[in-house]
Write a protein that binds this DNA or RNA. Structure first.
Lengths: 205, 205, 205, 205
DNA sequence: TATGAATGAGTGTTCATTCAT
DNA sequence: GATGAATGAACACTCATTCAT
């Protein structure tokens, strides 16, 4: 009764724990994050973490799921809208990914998953289908669209999509870990400009 | 003991252990690699690993040192030689990094260090000075050289260098972990072609 | 709450929980049975189990109490009735124990108590006085009766009673655990025949 | 160097740990025995237990194996020797089982395995083939032999073997747990006499 | 120089118990 | 009365490190 005010609604707990887990996974890596750390950050006991997520791996899986949900629909809509030149759409997609994903969630997802995907093999398919392929398809779509409009020329769509995707992922990856540790954070705005210029120039007929 | 002819020379032991460690760190990550695994791969007992490297962290530190040594000098020479156009030199540098580094050491270095740099903070300066900055300087040099020759135009050399470096690092990163796990290995040759085209086009005046 | 008609009567709850507990204790053992499993089988929440039985040990104690009650009175009456030869009464007692006890309760009681009696020392006296001694006394009574009628001869009544009791208990014990696991269930009817024959023959003058 | 005298030979460690485990499993049950208790009794650290036996279950499995080995060969020889009447051989087998097995190992084996067989399903076949069936076959052999010699009559060999085996197992079972806890230890000598008399009488033509 | 037995701190997970609702 | 979210002690297991040989 005394701490009623502090008793959050059950439905929120899972989210809070997941948020704490994502933050710590991103900051310290999966292996270096102890379940009790997650509990502490979420303001619960370590037993409570187990109550909501049976295993630490389940927590990681939930991270992937959460990542895959929110932002992607917006990106898909952006691509479906098909407004402006393909080059402009490419720029928008890059900017959107950078702005919506980097600071919070997506960059962390990639870093964590990259580090652990080898240790949880059944993770891979899940991640590939929920995150990687949908993302890649956005880039492929824009490249194909640009080719159809004679804006772009590209004899290897798959690889170009990988380059576009990868060099953007690198921004998130880098800033989430190495950039901070080395005191060499990449300036997002400048990177995006360079990325866009390089992307469009590289696809020009 | 009696079979002296079949005993490897002690001096080689440390190298063998280090090679084994690098391979396993790259494949499974630092945390998931056990010292006994390293020992097994190196063909020694796990006690012997401790004999050559006092702690597991020392092994990681030694990885960084070794990484910084061998291949870099060749790249430096390539850049110093200054033969052909800046674009051609950029292409050569990319290819050199890809061919000499990916399959063996560099990609592993990056993956491992990326994962652990947050847990061993004093690593960062070491890595930055021995690996990151020398690499970046090669790209900066080529960009400046191209600009001086009016081959390239670039109003943000630092960021362009980061993009070039980063999108190449992504190739190593990706194939070392995600590509394998997701069965989406990037074809190095095709990636390099796309990278070169995009790099040169993005720098064209 | 509104659906009062479908709510079981509180008084029954404790019994239902106890029945569920006994079943699970017998099937999986005391240690391997979780309170939530008991709750689930009883159709209540695990909080409710704690409401009726303060601790898991209390649940075990209640099992012993319940065991001691029901069936024993019927057996006592059977022996008190003293109808037919002592051999026939022995056969009836064995059959009664087997039929009324094995499938439901007694076998489970023995298995569970056997397993935990060492961990709850104060259990022992309770069990001895409420279950073991009354049972043994039935066998002793029949043997003495047979001797008085010159039907039986026995120079060690106590041990004979133990053999009769024990070889019957084995039937319950075995089928409750080993028989099932090893796919070597003892056929009750055939075992009883062999038991009776052996018992009567062994007591024949 | 100082404790060289106390450094037992590695080969003995596994045996010591196993002995400690068997003792504790028998005294307290599998679930109530903590690995560190086993370690303590064996005079090693709990880590050392894990060094010799990867899991607690492996320790249990090793118990079964040890049980199955030693004494059984002697019993088999006893039966193979075929000296004296079948009744005498039956008596000898019972006595042998009782004397060699009860005080030390076999009774514990049965108690522990009985308790856990349901929790480690793949155990069952192992136990059945290594322990149960060989034992039963000894009894079956003696019964068949007696029948062949017209010493015995039995129309259900399998069940008679179960009764003989089971009522002997009960002696071990009981004294290992209930007998001690209830202060109702069965006197082995007297029980064996009653068992032999009942067995032979029950099989008499 | 090399070994591998031994250690024990560290961690994920389980689950009986509590208690605010 | 009944619930189930929350707790935290307990435990099995892992593994880097040590050290006697």
């Amino acid at each position: 009764m005394s701490d009623v005010a502090f008793r959050r609604r059950p439905a929120e707990r899972g989210e809070e724990i997941l948020t704490a887990a994502m933050g710590l996974f991103a900051e310290k890596g999966f292996g270096a994050t102890r379940v009790v750390d997650i509990a502490r950050r979420a303001g619960v006991s370590h037993g409570t973490v187990g109550f909501y997520f049976a295993t630490k791996e389940a927590l990681l899986r939930a991270c992937v799921d959460r990542m895959a949900l929110a932002e992607f629909d917006d990106m898909q809509r952006l691509v479906d809208a098909d407004q402006g030149s393909a080059a402009a759409q490419l720029q928008q997609l890059g900017r959107f990914m950078a702005e919506h994903c980097q600071s919070e969630e997506m960059s962390r997802l990639f870093r964590v998953v990259e580090g652990e995907i080898g240790n949880f093999p059944d993770f891979a398919a899940h991640f590939r289908d929920r995150v990687f392929e949908p993302m890649m398809e956005l880039f492929r779509t824009l490249i194909r669209r640009g080719i159809a409009r004679h804006e772009f020329a590209c004899d290897d769509i798959e690889t170009c999509a990988q380059l576009l995707f990868g060099s953007l992922v690198h921004l998130f990856d880098w800033n989430a870990a190495m950039g901070a540790a080395l005191d060499r954070q990449i300036d997002q705005e400048r990177y995006l400009r360079a990325w866009t210029r390089s992307a469009v120039a590289g696809l020009r007929p």
